[in-house]
């Protein structure tokens, strides 16, 4: 099953639209609640990043019998040093983002904890792509 969502620049009120919808789909498919939580927490963190740190982008979701494959691809400034960005506590979030309750530098490490495969690729000045896989068993 393939799903696509658009993430709009600066649109915080809609951050989580993709994750919410994926949550409903996985529940309907009977995926275990602990796994659903891991999937949607990771996807939500990636969605929020595409809004908070970039200019929006696309979320591509493929659900198979035994796993979910998610790609969040944004247009944005990119991440110059991915290893640094992956460290707990590292954040360049703007004050507006902090006002929304984000910007603790926990998102990427939290994605890493929740998914089975995480690939972050980024080109400075172009954008960032976060690919995640969670196995259902």
């Amino acid at each position: 099953m393939h799903q696509e969502y658009t993430v709009i620049e600066g649109d915080f009120t809609n951050a989580g639209t993709a994750s919410s919808s994926v949550k409903k789909t996985l529940k309907q498919l009977g995926v275990a609640p602990q796994i659903v939580k891991r999937v949607v927490v990771a996807l939500y963190e990636a969605e929020v990043n595409a809004i908070a740190h970039a200019y929006g982008g696309k979320v591509l979701v493929d659900i198979e019998a035994d796993k979910i494959h998610m790609v969040v691809a944004d247009k944005g400034p990119g991440i110059p040093d991915i290893a640094q960005a992956m460290q707990e506590g590292y954040s360049t979030a703007r004050p507006e983002v902090r006002d929304m309750g984000f910007g603790a530098g926990m998102g990427l490490p939290n994605m890493q904890k929740n998914v089975d495969v995480l690939n972050v690729t980024s080109e400075v000045g172009v954008g960032t792509t976060v690919e995640m896989i969670v196995n259902f068993v």
Binding site: G16, S19, S20, G101, G103, A104, M106, G107
Partner: peptide, 30 residues
Amino acid sequence: LMSDVLTLKDTPMLITGLCNVQTIRTCDMA
């Protein structure tokens, strides 16, 4: 901090001073 809430494995009652749509979304995901 919603970032903190998203790291919880359990599902406690949340006490927060952050009152916006993101609070509700975060709770939904967590």
